[in-house]
Nucleic acid binder design. Structure first.
Lengths: 229, 229
DNA sequence: AATTTTGTTTGTGCAAGATCAAAGAACGGG
DNA sequence: CCCGTTCTTTGATCTTGCACAAACAAAATT
Protein backbone atom coordinates (compact mmCIF):
# COMPACT_ATOMS: atom_id res chain seq x y z
CA UNK A 1 0.00 0.00 0.00
CA UNK A 2 1.58 3.29 -1.07
CA UNK A 3 1.74 5.96 1.59
CA UNK A 4 -1.11 8.43 1.22
CA UNK A 5 -0.37 12.11 1.29
CA UNK A 6 -1.97 14.39 3.92
CA UNK A 7 -2.70 16.94 1.22
CA UNK A 8 -5.50 14.62 0.10
CA UNK A 9 -7.58 15.43 3.16
CA UNK A 10 -6.46 18.85 4.29
CA UNK A 11 -8.66 20.83 1.87
CA UNK A 12 -11.79 18.93 2.94
CA UNK A 13 -14.08 20.50 5.55
CA UNK A 14 -14.12 17.70 8.13
CA UNK A 15 -10.34 17.76 8.32
CA UNK A 16 -9.47 21.27 7.32
CA UNK A 17 -8.60 22.50 10.80
CA UNK A 18 -6.44 19.56 11.75
CA UNK A 19 -2.64 19.63 12.00
CA UNK A 20 -0.64 17.58 9.52
CA UNK A 21 0.32 14.88 11.96
CA UNK A 22 -3.27 14.14 12.93
CA UNK A 23 -4.20 13.84 9.28
CA UNK A 24 -1.37 11.39 8.84
CA UNK A 25 -2.76 9.35 11.74
CA UNK A 26 -6.14 9.30 10.11
CA UNK A 27 -4.71 8.21 6.81
CA UNK A 28 -2.78 5.41 8.45
CA UNK A 29 -6.08 3.77 9.27
CA UNK A 30 -7.52 4.28 5.80
CA UNK A 31 -7.39 2.00 2.83
CA UNK A 32 -7.82 3.39 -0.65
CA UNK A 33 -9.84 1.50 -3.20
CA UNK A 34 -10.60 1.95 -6.84
CA UNK A 35 -13.95 0.92 -8.30
CA UNK A 36 -14.97 0.53 -11.90
CA UNK A 37 -17.95 2.48 -13.17
CA UNK A 38 -21.33 1.01 -12.34
CA UNK A 39 -20.44 -1.29 -9.47
CA UNK A 40 -21.81 -1.39 -5.93
CA UNK A 41 -19.51 -0.18 -3.16
CA UNK A 42 -21.95 -1.56 -0.63
CA UNK A 43 -25.47 -2.91 -0.78
CA UNK A 44 -28.61 -2.04 1.06
CA UNK A 45 -28.84 -4.21 4.13
CA UNK A 46 -25.14 -5.02 4.37
CA UNK A 47 -23.59 -4.72 7.80
CA UNK A 48 -22.32 -1.15 8.01
CA UNK A 49 -18.79 -2.01 9.05
CA UNK A 50 -17.07 0.73 7.08
CA UNK A 51 -17.47 4.36 6.18
CA UNK A 52 -16.13 6.07 3.11
CA UNK A 53 -14.78 9.26 1.64
CA UNK A 54 -15.12 9.78 -2.09
CA UNK A 55 -11.74 11.02 -3.30
CA UNK A 56 -12.48 11.03 -6.97
CA UNK A 57 -15.36 10.07 -9.19
CA UNK A 58 -19.04 10.06 -8.62
CA UNK A 59 -21.35 7.91 -6.52
CA UNK A 60 -25.10 7.44 -6.52
CA UNK A 61 -27.17 6.35 -3.56
CA UNK A 62 -29.78 4.01 -4.91
CA UNK A 63 -32.68 2.10 -3.55
CA UNK A 64 -34.46 -0.90 -4.98
CA UNK A 65 -38.20 -1.10 -4.58
CA UNK A 66 -39.93 -4.38 -3.77
CA UNK A 67 -41.01 -4.48 -7.41
CA UNK A 68 -37.39 -4.29 -8.48
CA UNK A 69 -37.30 -0.75 -9.77
CA UNK A 70 -34.37 1.49 -8.98
CA UNK A 71 -34.79 4.90 -7.46
CA UNK A 72 -31.85 7.26 -7.30
CA UNK A 73 -32.04 9.06 -3.98
CA UNK A 74 -28.85 11.08 -3.83
CA UNK A 75 -25.72 11.99 -5.71
CA UNK A 76 -22.43 12.16 -3.84
CA UNK A 77 -19.84 14.53 -5.29
CA UNK A 78 -16.18 13.89 -4.62
CA UNK A 79 -14.86 15.15 -1.30
CA UNK A 80 -17.88 13.96 0.65
CA UNK A 81 -18.26 11.24 3.21
CA UNK A 82 -20.83 8.53 2.60
CA UNK A 83 -21.92 5.27 4.11
CA UNK A 84 -21.79 6.89 7.53
CA UNK A 85 -24.52 4.69 8.93
CA UNK A 86 -22.65 4.66 12.22
CA UNK A 87 -23.27 8.38 12.68
CA UNK A 88 -26.99 7.65 12.82
CA UNK A 89 -26.68 4.53 14.96
CA UNK A 90 -27.47 2.17 12.17
CA UNK A 91 -25.95 -1.24 11.99
CA UNK A 92 -26.80 -1.71 8.36
CA UNK A 93 -26.68 0.46 5.23
CA UNK A 94 -30.13 1.81 4.34
CA UNK A 95 -29.39 1.99 0.61
CA UNK A 96 -26.96 0.86 -2.04
CA UNK A 97 -24.02 3.00 -3.18
CA UNK A 98 -23.06 2.61 -6.82
CA UNK A 99 -20.31 4.28 -8.76
CA UNK A 100 -21.47 6.35 -11.72
CA UNK A 101 -17.95 6.49 -13.11
CA UNK A 102 -14.63 4.98 -12.18
CA UNK A 103 -14.05 6.18 -8.63
CA UNK A 104 -11.53 6.19 -5.84
CA UNK A 105 -12.59 6.04 -2.22
CA UNK A 106 -10.91 5.94 1.14
CA UNK A 107 -12.48 3.67 3.69
CA UNK A 108 -12.20 3.20 7.41
CA UNK A 109 -13.64 0.58 9.76
CA UNK A 110 -16.80 1.84 11.47
CA UNK A 111 -15.38 1.13 14.89
CA UNK A 112 -13.05 4.10 14.41
CA UNK A 113 -16.01 6.46 13.98
CA UNK A 114 -16.47 7.33 17.64
CA UNK A 115 -12.78 8.05 17.99
CA UNK A 116 -12.88 10.40 15.01
CA UNK A 117 -15.80 12.26 16.51
CA UNK A 118 -14.19 12.74 19.89
CA UNK A 119 -10.58 13.26 18.84
CA UNK A 120 -10.79 15.42 15.77
CA UNK A 121 -12.15 18.86 16.22
CA UNK A 122 -14.81 19.89 13.76
CA UNK A 123 -15.22 16.41 12.35
CA UNK A 124 -18.59 15.74 13.98
CA UNK A 125 -19.79 19.25 13.28
CA UNK A 126 -19.03 19.08 9.60
CA UNK A 127 -20.37 15.63 9.02
CA UNK A 128 -23.65 16.38 10.76
CA UNK A 129 -23.89 19.44 8.60
CA UNK A 130 -23.76 17.32 5.49
CA UNK A 131 -26.34 14.98 7.00
CA UNK A 132 -28.52 18.02 7.53
CA UNK A 133 -28.00 19.15 3.97
CA UNK A 134 -28.96 15.76 2.63
CA UNK A 135 -32.06 15.69 4.77
CA UNK A 136 -33.00 19.08 3.44
CA UNK A 137 -32.45 17.93 -0.10
CA UNK A 138 -34.68 14.93 0.43
CA UNK A 139 -37.29 17.23 1.92
CA UNK A 140 -37.17 19.21 -1.28
CA UNK A 141 -37.48 16.18 -3.45
CA UNK A 142 -40.53 14.93 -1.59
CA UNK A 143 -42.21 18.29 -1.98
CA UNK A 144 -41.23 18.35 -5.61
CA UNK A 145 -42.54 14.91 -6.40
CA UNK A 146 -45.76 15.68 -4.59
CA UNK A 147 -46.55 18.88 -6.40
CA UNK A 148 -44.65 19.30 -9.66
CA UNK A 149 -45.28 17.85 -13.09
CA UNK A 150 -42.86 15.60 -14.88
CA UNK A 151 -41.50 18.37 -17.06
CA UNK A 152 -40.73 20.56 -14.07
CA UNK A 153 -39.15 17.72 -12.14
CA UNK A 154 -36.84 16.88 -14.99
CA UNK A 155 -35.90 20.53 -15.44
CA UNK A 156 -35.10 20.69 -11.72
CA UNK A 157 -33.04 17.53 -11.87
CA UNK A 158 -30.96 18.88 -14.74
CA UNK A 159 -30.44 22.17 -12.97
CA UNK A 160 -29.31 20.38 -9.84
CA UNK A 161 -26.91 18.26 -11.86
CA UNK A 162 -25.29 21.17 -13.62
CA UNK A 163 -24.95 23.00 -10.34
CA UNK A 164 -23.19 20.06 -8.75
CA UNK A 165 -21.09 18.88 -11.64
CA UNK A 166 -21.47 21.40 -14.40
CA UNK A 167 -18.45 22.01 -16.59
CA UNK A 168 -18.54 25.06 -18.76
CA UNK A 169 -17.94 24.54 -22.46
CA UNK A 170 -18.25 26.75 -25.47
CA UNK A 171 -21.77 25.50 -26.16
CA UNK A 172 -23.15 25.63 -22.64
CA UNK A 173 -22.87 23.79 -19.36
CA UNK A 174 -22.11 20.13 -19.61
CA UNK A 175 -22.83 17.36 -17.13
CA UNK A 176 -19.39 15.92 -16.78
CA UNK A 177 -20.17 12.30 -16.17
CA UNK A 178 -22.08 9.82 -18.29
CA UNK A 179 -25.80 9.91 -17.63
CA UNK A 180 -28.53 8.06 -19.44
CA UNK A 181 -32.19 8.92 -19.83
CA UNK A 182 -32.88 5.89 -17.73
CA UNK A 183 -30.85 7.51 -14.93
CA UNK A 184 -32.81 10.72 -15.19
CA UNK A 185 -36.06 8.83 -15.11
CA UNK A 186 -34.92 7.09 -11.94
CA UNK A 187 -34.13 10.42 -10.37
CA UNK A 188 -37.47 11.95 -11.23
CA UNK A 189 -39.87 9.07 -10.92
CA UNK A 190 -40.93 8.77 -14.52
CA UNK A 191 -40.10 6.53 -17.47
CA UNK A 192 -37.17 6.72 -19.81
CA UNK A 193 -39.64 7.18 -22.66
CA UNK A 194 -40.97 10.37 -21.23
CA UNK A 195 -37.48 11.69 -20.52
CA UNK A 196 -36.42 10.91 -24.06
CA UNK A 197 -39.38 12.71 -25.57
CA UNK A 198 -38.85 15.72 -23.40
CA UNK A 199 -35.15 16.01 -24.10
CA UNK A 200 -35.87 15.70 -27.81
CA UNK A 201 -38.36 18.51 -27.58
CA UNK A 202 -35.95 20.66 -25.61
CA UNK A 203 -33.21 19.97 -28.11
CA UNK A 204 -35.51 21.12 -30.89
CA UNK A 205 -36.09 24.31 -28.90
CA UNK A 206 -32.36 24.80 -28.43
CA UNK A 207 -32.48 24.45 -24.66
CA UNK A 208 -30.28 21.39 -24.43
CA UNK A 209 -28.08 19.31 -26.66
CA UNK A 210 -27.47 15.66 -26.03
CA UNK A 211 -25.56 12.78 -27.37
CA UNK A 212 -25.51 9.32 -25.97
CA UNK A 213 -24.86 9.41 -22.20
CA UNK A 214 -24.08 13.05 -22.51
CA UNK A 215 -26.06 16.21 -21.92
CA UNK A 216 -25.18 19.86 -22.45
CA UNK A 217 -27.51 22.54 -21.17
CA UNK A 218 -27.30 25.41 -23.63
CA UNK A 219 -29.79 27.70 -21.98
CA UNK A 220 -30.14 27.13 -18.23
CA UNK A 221 -32.39 30.13 -17.89
CA UNK A 222 -35.09 28.61 -20.07
CA UNK A 223 -34.95 25.55 -17.80
CA UNK A 224 -35.48 27.72 -14.75
CA UNK A 225 -38.53 29.17 -16.44
CA UNK A 226 -39.93 25.71 -17.12
CA UNK A 227 -39.48 25.03 -13.43
CA UNK A 228 -42.27 27.28 -12.26
CA UNK A 229 -44.97 27.52 -14.82
CA UNK B 1 -44.52 28.13 36.29
CA UNK B 2 -45.38 24.92 38.16
CA UNK B 3 -42.49 22.60 38.90
CA UNK B 4 -42.30 19.84 36.30
CA UNK B 5 -41.97 16.28 37.46
CA UNK B 6 -38.93 14.18 36.45
CA UNK B 7 -41.22 11.28 35.69
CA UNK B 8 -42.20 13.14 32.54
CA UNK B 9 -38.84 12.50 30.93
CA UNK B 10 -37.52 9.38 32.55
CA UNK B 11 -39.42 6.92 30.34
CA UNK B 12 -38.14 8.59 27.16
CA UNK B 13 -35.11 7.10 25.41
CA UNK B 14 -32.84 10.16 25.35
CA UNK B 15 -33.12 10.51 29.12
CA UNK B 16 -33.87 7.01 30.24
CA UNK B 17 -30.44 6.28 31.66
CA UNK B 18 -30.09 9.51 33.57
CA UNK B 19 -30.33 9.85 37.35
CA UNK B 20 -33.24 11.80 38.80
CA UNK B 21 -31.24 14.85 39.74
CA UNK B 22 -29.87 15.31 36.23
CA UNK B 23 -33.38 15.12 34.83
CA UNK B 24 -34.43 17.77 37.30
CA UNK B 25 -31.62 19.97 36.07
CA UNK B 26 -32.77 19.49 32.50
CA UNK B 27 -36.31 20.35 33.40
CA UNK B 28 -35.23 23.49 35.19
CA UNK B 29 -34.16 24.88 31.85
CA UNK B 30 -37.33 23.85 30.07
CA UNK B 31 -40.50 25.77 29.58
CA UNK B 32 -43.76 23.98 28.90
CA UNK B 33 -46.19 25.37 26.39
CA UNK B 34 -49.63 24.47 25.25
CA UNK B 35 -50.75 24.98 21.67
CA UNK B 36 -54.21 24.87 20.16
CA UNK B 37 -54.89 22.50 17.30
CA UNK B 38 -53.78 23.72 13.91
CA UNK B 39 -51.27 26.38 14.85
CA UNK B 40 -47.62 26.74 13.94
CA UNK B 41 -45.05 26.07 16.66
CA UNK B 42 -42.36 27.48 14.42
CA UNK B 43 -42.19 28.44 10.78
CA UNK B 44 -39.88 27.46 7.99
CA UNK B 45 -37.02 29.94 7.87
CA UNK B 46 -37.34 31.11 11.48
CA UNK B 47 -34.13 31.35 13.46
CA UNK B 48 -33.74 27.98 15.13
CA UNK B 49 -33.25 29.29 18.63
CA UNK B 50 -35.17 26.54 20.39
CA UNK B 51 -35.65 22.82 20.30
CA UNK B 52 -38.69 20.91 21.46
CA UNK B 53 -40.01 17.74 22.98
CA UNK B 54 -43.58 16.78 22.25
CA UNK B 55 -45.10 15.77 25.58
CA UNK B 56 -48.64 15.28 24.41
CA UNK B 57 -50.54 15.69 21.21
CA UNK B 58 -49.50 15.40 17.64
CA UNK B 59 -47.33 17.53 15.38
CA UNK B 60 -46.89 17.63 11.62
CA UNK B 61 -43.80 18.83 9.81
CA UNK B 62 -45.02 20.72 6.80
CA UNK B 63 -43.50 22.48 3.87
CA UNK B 64 -44.98 25.10 1.62
CA UNK B 65 -44.11 24.98 -2.06
CA UNK B 66 -43.41 28.15 -4.02
CA UNK B 67 -46.86 27.73 -5.55
CA UNK B 68 -48.39 27.77 -2.07
CA UNK B 69 -49.31 24.13 -1.75
CA UNK B 70 -48.69 22.28 1.48
CA UNK B 71 -46.78 19.04 1.65
CA UNK B 72 -46.77 17.03 4.86
CA UNK B 73 -43.29 15.61 5.26
CA UNK B 74 -43.38 13.94 8.67
CA UNK B 75 -45.56 13.14 11.64
CA UNK B 76 -44.13 13.50 15.10
CA UNK B 77 -45.66 11.25 17.76
CA UNK B 78 -45.55 12.35 21.35
CA UNK B 79 -42.34 11.58 23.19
CA UNK B 80 -40.12 12.68 20.33
CA UNK B 81 -37.81 15.61 19.95
CA UNK B 82 -38.32 17.97 17.04
CA UNK B 83 -37.02 21.25 15.75
CA UNK B 84 -33.51 20.03 16.50
CA UNK B 85 -31.97 22.09 13.72
CA UNK B 86 -28.98 22.68 15.96
CA UNK B 87 -28.08 19.01 15.83
CA UNK B 88 -27.51 19.36 12.10
CA UNK B 89 -25.76 22.70 12.31
CA UNK B 90 -28.63 24.65 10.91
CA UNK B 91 -29.34 28.17 12.00
CA UNK B 92 -32.87 28.13 10.68
CA UNK B 93 -35.76 25.65 10.67
CA UNK B 94 -36.06 23.89 7.33
CA UNK B 95 -39.81 23.36 7.64
CA UNK B 96 -42.87 24.43 9.58
CA UNK B 97 -44.16 22.48 12.59
CA UNK B 98 -47.93 22.55 13.06
CA UNK B 99 -50.05 20.96 15.72
CA UNK B 100 -52.61 18.48 14.46
CA UNK B 101 -54.44 18.54 17.78
CA UNK B 102 -54.09 20.49 20.99
CA UNK B 103 -50.55 19.73 22.12
CA UNK B 104 -48.11 20.28 24.93
CA UNK B 105 -44.42 20.71 24.31
CA UNK B 106 -41.33 21.36 26.36
CA UNK B 107 -38.83 23.71 24.85
CA UNK B 108 -35.24 24.62 25.52
CA UNK B 109 -32.99 27.33 24.08
CA UNK B 110 -30.77 25.95 21.31
CA UNK B 111 -27.65 27.17 23.06
CA UNK B 112 -28.14 24.41 25.62
CA UNK B 113 -27.92 21.74 22.94
CA UNK B 114 -24.17 21.24 23.03
CA UNK B 115 -24.24 20.94 26.78
CA UNK B 116 -26.94 18.28 26.59
CA UNK B 117 -24.89 16.30 24.10
CA UNK B 118 -21.72 16.39 26.16
CA UNK B 119 -23.19 16.09 29.66
CA UNK B 120 -25.97 13.59 29.30
CA UNK B 121 -25.03 10.10 28.40
CA UNK B 122 -26.97 8.55 25.60
CA UNK B 123 -28.66 11.79 24.64
CA UNK B 124 -26.67 12.30 21.44
CA UNK B 125 -26.85 8.65 20.56
CA UNK B 126 -30.60 8.46 20.86
CA UNK B 127 -31.34 11.68 19.07
CA UNK B 128 -29.12 10.80 16.14
CA UNK B 129 -30.91 7.52 15.99
CA UNK B 130 -34.21 9.27 15.49
CA UNK B 131 -32.62 11.50 12.86
CA UNK B 132 -31.50 8.34 11.13
CA UNK B 133 -34.97 6.88 11.34
CA UNK B 134 -36.50 9.99 9.84
CA UNK B 135 -33.99 10.00 7.05
CA UNK B 136 -34.84 6.40 6.35
CA UNK B 137 -38.52 7.21 6.32
CA UNK B 138 -37.99 10.01 3.86
CA UNK B 139 -35.97 7.65 1.72
CA UNK B 140 -38.94 5.35 1.68
CA UNK B 141 -41.33 8.09 0.77
CA UNK B 142 -39.23 9.22 -2.15
CA UNK B 143 -39.05 5.70 -3.50
CA UNK B 144 -42.76 5.32 -2.94
CA UNK B 145 -43.70 8.51 -4.72
CA UNK B 146 -41.44 7.62 -7.60
CA UNK B 147 -42.79 4.17 -8.22
CA UNK B 148 -46.21 3.58 -6.68
CA UNK B 149 -49.66 4.57 -7.84
CA UNK B 150 -51.96 6.81 -5.90
CA UNK B 151 -53.98 3.92 -4.51
CA UNK B 152 -50.90 2.20 -3.16
CA UNK B 153 -49.49 5.38 -1.71
CA UNK B 154 -52.70 6.10 0.16
CA UNK B 155 -52.86 2.55 1.45
CA UNK B 156 -49.29 2.92 2.70
CA UNK B 157 -50.04 6.23 4.33
CA UNK B 158 -52.99 4.76 6.22
CA UNK B 159 -50.95 1.77 7.32
CA UNK B 160 -48.21 4.05 8.59
CA UNK B 161 -50.75 6.14 10.48
CA UNK B 162 -52.38 3.21 12.22
CA UNK B 163 -48.97 1.85 13.15
CA UNK B 164 -47.98 5.11 14.72
CA UNK B 165 -51.22 6.15 16.31
CA UNK B 166 -53.60 3.27 15.91
CA UNK B 167 -56.07 2.72 18.71
CA UNK B 168 -57.83 -0.59 18.73
CA UNK B 169 -61.62 -0.48 18.84
CA UNK B 170 -64.29 -3.08 18.44
CA UNK B 171 -64.66 -2.28 14.74
CA UNK B 172 -61.01 -2.09 13.80
CA UNK B 173 -58.02 0.17 14.24
CA UNK B 174 -58.77 3.83 14.55
CA UNK B 175 -56.55 6.79 13.77
CA UNK B 176 -56.81 8.63 17.03
CA UNK B 177 -56.52 12.19 15.89
CA UNK B 178 -58.63 14.18 13.46
CA UNK B 179 -57.48 13.79 9.88
CA UNK B 180 -59.09 15.14 6.74
CA UNK B 181 -58.90 13.85 3.18
CA UNK B 182 -57.05 17.04 2.41
CA UNK B 183 -54.41 15.98 4.94
CA UNK B 184 -54.06 12.59 3.37
CA UNK B 185 -53.76 14.12 -0.07
CA UNK B 186 -50.96 16.34 1.23
CA UNK B 187 -49.16 13.31 2.59
CA UNK B 188 -49.40 11.37 -0.64
CA UNK B 189 -49.11 14.02 -3.32
CA UNK B 190 -52.58 13.73 -4.77
CA UNK B 191 -55.84 15.66 -4.58
CA UNK B 192 -58.50 15.50 -1.91
CA UNK B 193 -60.99 14.46 -4.58
CA UNK B 194 -59.06 11.33 -5.42
CA UNK B 195 -58.65 10.48 -1.74
CA UNK B 196 -62.35 10.91 -1.17
CA UNK B 197 -63.30 8.65 -4.06
CA UNK B 198 -60.87 6.00 -2.95
CA UNK B 199 -62.00 5.99 0.67
CA UNK B 200 -65.59 5.76 -0.48
CA UNK B 201 -64.74 2.74 -2.60
CA UNK B 202 -62.86 1.11 0.27
CA UNK B 203 -65.74 1.79 2.59
CA UNK B 204 -68.05 0.05 0.14
CA UNK B 205 -65.68 -2.92 0.18
CA UNK B 206 -65.64 -2.93 3.98
CA UNK B 207 -61.94 -2.15 4.25
CA UNK B 208 -62.34 1.14 6.08
CA UNK B 209 -65.05 3.15 7.73
CA UNK B 210 -64.93 6.88 7.93
CA UNK B 211 -66.81 9.77 9.30
CA UNK B 212 -65.80 13.37 9.10
CA UNK B 213 -62.16 13.79 10.18
CA UNK B 214 -62.17 10.25 11.38
CA UNK B 215 -60.98 6.99 9.88
CA UNK B 216 -61.21 3.42 11.13
CA UNK B 217 -59.36 0.70 9.30
CA UNK B 218 -61.48 -2.43 9.58
CA UNK B 219 -59.27 -4.73 7.58
CA UNK B 220 -55.60 -3.73 7.60
CA UNK B 221 -54.64 -6.88 5.78
CA UNK B 222 -56.60 -5.93 2.67
CA UNK B 223 -54.75 -2.61 2.70
CA UNK B 224 -51.43 -4.43 2.78
CA UNK B 225 -52.55 -6.38 -0.25
CA UNK B 226 -53.43 -3.20 -2.11
CA UNK B 227 -49.92 -2.03 -1.34
CA UNK B 228 -48.18 -4.40 -3.70
CA UNK B 229 -50.33 -5.18 -6.66
C1' DA C 1 -16.31 -6.81 -40.37
C1' DA C 2 -19.99 -9.11 -38.17
C1' DT C 3 -22.65 -9.58 -34.10
C1' DT C 4 -24.34 -8.53 -29.70
C1' DT C 5 -25.35 -5.35 -26.25
C1' DT C 6 -26.79 -1.11 -24.67
C1' DG C 7 -28.92 3.22 -25.20
C1' DT C 8 -32.21 6.26 -27.78
C1' DT C 9 -36.14 7.71 -30.58
C1' DT C 10 -40.79 7.71 -31.91
C1' DG C 11 -45.69 6.33 -32.66
C1' DT C 12 -50.24 4.89 -30.97
C1' DG C 13 -53.86 3.80 -27.77
C1' DC C 14 -55.38 3.87 -23.23
C1' DA C 15 -56.09 4.64 -18.34
C1' DA C 16 -55.16 7.00 -14.16
C1' DG C 17 -55.94 10.76 -12.08
C1' DA C 18 -56.31 16.01 -12.23
C1' DT C 19 -59.53 19.66 -12.90
C1' DC C 20 -63.92 21.86 -12.95
C1' DA C 21 -68.33 22.21 -10.96
C1' DA C 22 -71.94 21.72 -7.79
C1' DA C 23 -74.28 20.10 -4.06
C1' DG C 24 -74.81 17.79 0.32
C1' DA C 25 -73.58 16.83 5.32
C1' DA C 26 -71.60 17.77 9.75
C1' DC C 27 -70.14 20.98 12.90
C1' DG C 28 -69.62 25.37 15.68
C1' DG C 29 -70.93 29.79 17.21
C1' DG C 30 -74.10 33.27 18.03
C1' DC D 1 -82.17 26.98 16.04
C1' DC D 2 -80.16 29.19 12.22
C1' DC D 3 -76.36 30.39 9.53
C1' DG D 4 -71.81 30.27 7.93
C1' DT D 5 -67.92 27.48 7.62
C1' DT D 6 -65.57 23.45 6.86
C1' DC D 7 -65.43 18.90 5.14
C1' DT D 8 -67.05 15.44 1.93
C1' DT D 9 -69.17 13.33 -2.07
C1' DT D 10 -70.06 12.65 -6.81
C1' DG D 11 -70.38 13.50 -11.78
C1' DA D 12 -68.42 15.05 -16.23
C1' DT D 13 -64.58 16.22 -18.81
C1' DC D 14 -59.90 16.63 -20.09
C1' DT D 15 -54.87 16.02 -19.79
C1' DT D 16 -50.85 13.69 -18.79
C1' DG D 17 -47.87 10.39 -19.18
C1' DC D 18 -47.60 5.19 -19.10
C1' DA D 19 -47.60 0.68 -21.66
C1' DC D 20 -46.47 -1.55 -25.57
C1' DA D 21 -44.05 -1.91 -29.75
C1' DA D 22 -40.75 -1.43 -33.17
C1' DA D 23 -36.80 0.49 -35.20
C1' DC D 24 -32.55 2.71 -35.04
C1' DA D 25 -27.80 4.04 -33.56
C1' DA D 26 -23.64 3.73 -31.21
C1' DA D 27 -20.50 1.09 -28.67
C1' DA D 28 -18.43 -3.21 -27.26
C1' DT D 29 -17.13 -7.86 -28.32
C1' DT D 30 -15.83 -11.51 -31.37
Amino acid sequence: MPKLDPSLLSPLPPFSRLPRDQISQILDHATAKRFDAGVAIFDEGDAADRFFLLLDGYVRVVRLTPAGEQVIALHIPSGQLFGIAKALQRTTYPATAMTAVESVVLCWPSRLWDGFVTNYDGFATETYKTVGDRLGEMHNRIAEMATLHVEQRIANALLRLINQTGRKTEHGIEIDFPITRQDISEMTGTTLHTVSRLLSAWQKDGIVESRRKHIVVKDPHRLVILTDS
